[in-house]
């Protein structure tokens, strides 16, 4: 089975989904990713889906689950590069990916992750002072 590579960059894990997703592939990705978060202590996950032509309810659900899992393991998830036609279709289909951050492209996604993590650090510092 083809695997989706997970790259570690600093405190982030990067995943670019380049191929059509088979169900087994995305479930394997979910497994591997949660293990990687724990192993590397990654604080952010960036999943780029700009190559995906469709996101059906199954893929949408798994992406949302990945984000919830990551959150429980103290990591934030950003999904980037969604095509406009995919966004329109997802809304009509009724998929809402609650808890998943999105950004227009990978670069914006990295910036968003930086912002979120720094905000967290700030909040930690603040609560330490008080």
């Amino acid at each position: 089975m083809e695997r989706i590579p997970i790259l570690k960059v600093g405190q982030y894990l990067l995943i670019t989904i380049q191929v059509d997703l088979h169900d087994k592939m995305i479930l394997a990705l979910q497994d591997e990713l949660t293990n990687m978060i724990v192993k590397t202590g990654a604080r952010g996950i960036l999943i780029d889906i700009s190559a995906l032509e469709i996101v059906d309810s199954f893929i949408g659900r798994v992406l949302a689950q990945v984000a919830s899992c990551a959150k429980l393991l103290d990591a934030e998830t950003v999904v980037t590069g969604m095509r406009p036609a995919v966004a329109i279709t997802m809304v009509e289909l009724g998929i809402s990916m609650k808890g998943v951050h999105t950004a227009l492209n990978a670069e914006d996604g990295m910036e968003l992750l930086n912002d979120i993590l720094h905000r967290d650090e700030y909040a930690h510092d603040f609560s330490a002072i008080n």
Binding site: F58, R83, T89
Partner: peptide, 13 residues
């Protein structure tokens, strides 16, 4: 393109 995407998504579902 939008309608193609809708049709392919419906087929997947």
């Amino acid at each position: 393109l939008v309608n193609q995407t809708k049709i392919i998504t419906a087929a997947a579902e």
